[in-house]
């Protein structure tokens, strides 16, 4: 077991690597974490995700903008790719699978990819349908995978209006499935009106929402560890 000082140093390295969009530092930090015998889940959550939380804060404070977030995400993935194979299966009593995609008529997928990243981090099974996805495909994929969450993304008003159709169809077939909508033109009012369970209006918000979910998982994990 790594001593506390070394552990702290490695977690800092991972955290700062994400914040400073330094892919090499994240890769190094991840390898060091494994060599030092750190728990991979801990390195992910207390290192990489903790860094991403700070990135979300910097975005809100308008210190960072979308290009920086994208580079931070690359750094996070650089570390995650190394750590993930060493993660013990988290038994959280959650099935943890999600269908995600950008709706038909829209080819923007940055927000979608950021949310996807947080689900990747959380160890979800992610069924990424990509972008410009025909509406029925969301419905079919949800049925096929029995996922408990569907995330619909749209960047433009002109494509967002397909969302209520998908929500209605999924809820009709599977009322327990949670649906999150996201993208610049969406709003809480629209989410309520269309019967979605959550929404995120921009990358920061999407990130925050996804972080909230991941933070919730982390809390469960900590509680479990405490027992």
């Amino acid at each position: 077991m790594a001593d506390e000082a070394r552990k702290k140093e490695i977690l800092e390295k991972l955290r700062n690597g994400v914040i400073q969009y330094d892919e090499d530092a994240c890769r190094e930090g991840a390898n060091e974490a494994l060599e030092a015998g750190l728990d991979a889940n801990e390195a992910i959550f207390d290192g990489l995700v903790s860094g991403m939380e700070e990135v979300g804060r910097l975005f809100e404070a308008q210190e960072y903008f979308v290009p920086e977030i994208l580079m931070c995400a690359d750094a996070l993935y650089a570390g995650l790719d190394i750590l993930k194979p060493h993660c013990k299966q988290m038994d959280l009593g959650l099935k943890g699978s999600v269908v995600i995609g950008t709706v038909e008529g829209d080819v923007h997928d940055i927000g979608k990819n950021l949310v996807k990243m947080m689900f990747d981090v959380a160890g979800f099974n992610v069924y990424d349908l990509g972008r410009d996805v025909p509406l029925d495909k969301f419905v079919d994929e949800q049925l096929k995978t029995d996922s408990d969450l569907v995330c619909l993304s749209a960047m433009m008003t002109t494509s967002m209006v397909g969302m209520p159709t998908v929500i209605e169809k999924i809820k009709a077939k599977n009322p327990n499935c949670m649906i999150m909508i996201g993208g610049a033109p969406t709003s809480k009012d629209l989410a309520d009106k269309w019967g979605a369970d959550g929404y995120a209006e921009d990358a920061s918000n999407a990130l925050k929402e996804a972080i909230k979910m991941v933070a919730f998982l982390k809390k469960l994990r900590d509680e479990k560890a405490a027992k």
Partner: peptide
Amino acid sequence: INVYPQAEGILYPTI
């Protein structure tokens, strides 16, 4: 470009 010729509703063309 794709103008979604089969679309029933309104879909704006994309690249």
